Amino acid sequence: MTLTHRIPTGRRATAKPSRPLGRVRRGLAVGAAVAALALAATCAIAPAAPPSAAEQLNAYIAHHGQTLTVSDRGMLSVTRDAYSTTAGVQTLSANGTNYDWAKVVLMSGGWPTTDDNVTVLVRWMRQENGPDNWWNRNNPMNNGYGSGGGGGTGSYANLVIAAQKAAENLQRNPSFSAIVTALATAAPTSITEQAIWASPWASSHYGNGSRWHYTPVPVVTAPSSAW
């Protein structure tokens, strides 16, 4: 028996063609180019670095620039803040009045040199020695502490020392604490004076105020030798 294999007509078996190598390389090159373009586009849209402080300042000055035009016929007025000074012991000693001595007492005690405090002290000095000779024995308040006279009859080498000793005596003796408090708080004259009358500074207590004088105390200058 003879077997015969017949191939159907109209159909031909063909092999699948392979892609040429050159076309593959060209495809890879195109893909790389597209990726590079995408990366470049991404970098192009990235936000720019913020301006530096100097650049911002220059931009502000350029935008808010101002000019000042001054007429050659006018004057430019400049106003300065006011200032004040406080006289020291040396300046007060050079002036040499009873009011200056009262301020030295206050400065020695660390108390404010207000008008009320100064007024109380010059009135007190007048009660002790009178205004015309307030520097008597260089002891305007007849202070016994450190003057060599227990009853206030002693004297000091100069008025600066006398002021220091007056402040020290007021601060060291608890009996004078109400006076110190009044001076430290710059209390009204009436409050400080009542504290003086109630204290043992004067045995008479100034008649509890009945012998206290309120007329203005004249300004009197002591001899320079007293300072």
Rank of each mutant, 00 (worst) to 15 (best):
V78P: 03
W227Y: 14
E55N: 08
S77I: 13
G10A: 10
L28N: 10
T91R: 11
S71K: 02
E55L: 04
S77G: 05
Q194V: 10
I191F: 04
Y99E: 12
A53Y: 03
S199E: 09
T221A: 10
G74D: 13
A15C: 04
P20S: 10
S199R: 07
P17G: 05
W111P: 07
L68C: 01
V105N: 03
F176H: 08
L68W: 07
G88P: 05
Y83H: 14
A166G: 09
I7C: 05
L170M: 13
A36P: 03
S177F: 09
M107Q: 15
T69M: 03
Y206G: 01
N208E: 06
Q90I: 01
A187C: 12
N142Q: 14
S225F: 08
C43D: 10
H213C: 06
N143P: 10
A46M: 10
A36Q: 05
I191W: 02
A36E: 11
N143F: 08
G88T: 10
R73H: 12
T215N: 15
R19M: 08
Y60D: 14
L76D: 04
A38P: 06
S175Q: 14
H205T: 07
A178W: 11
E128L: 09
T86R: 14
A38E: 12
T189L: 03
Q66R: 13
A82E: 14
A167P: 07
T91D: 15
G88M: 06
V30P: 00
T189V: 15
R26H: 04
G109K: 01
P200W: 01
T2C: 07
P188Q: 02
A29E: 07
R172L: 14
G146Y: 00
G65V: 11
H63M: 02
D81M: 08
Q164N: 05
G88R: 07
H5L: 13
K16R: 15
D116S: 13
S77Y: 14
